[in-house]
């Protein structure tokens, strides 16, 4: 039998954190898809990782830095070009505080 890795309640919870609202049918569909992905990840558990440092990055590079130098910023108009709403050089959003 296939184990359940993520419940529909958990999907609803994570959706809520991401400000997403799903219909019941969607919640079930995503739960099933996420379960499939997570089960696939189980394959990794078959590898013996005893004594192996957890990997945090795909490439071995360390200490990639930029110098503290000011470069060019975007023109405000360009910065706001994708904003669904803008006003007075600002992005405008539904009020986020009561």
């Amino acid at each position: 039998m296939e184990t359940t890795k993520i419940s529909t309640d958990e999907v609803t919870y994570v959706a809520n954190l991401a400000r997403l609202i799903f219909a019941e049918e969607e919640t079930e569909r995503f739960a099933s898809q996420l379960n499939a992905i997570l089960r696939y990840m189980d394959t990794l558990q078959e590898v013996d990782t005893t004594g192996v440092e957890p990997m945090t990055h795909a490439i071995a590079q360390k200490n990639a830095f930029r110098t503290d130098a000011v470069g060019e910023s975007l023109p405000v108009k360009t910065a706001l070009a994708n904003a669904p709403e803008a006003r007075g050089n600002c992005f405008q959003v539904p009020k986020v505080i009561e």
Binding site: R66, D68, A69, V70, G71, E72, S73, L74, V76, A79, L80, G88, N89, C90, F91
Partner: peptide, 21 residues
């Protein structure tokens, strides 16, 4: 002088969104 991950200025008091990239 510059932000933590890009070259935009950190200067306080500039016109809104003029220090963005």
């Amino acid at each position: 002088d510059a932000k933590i991950f890009c070259g935009c200025s950190t200067k306080f008091g500039a016109a809104p969104n003029s220090h963005t990239c």
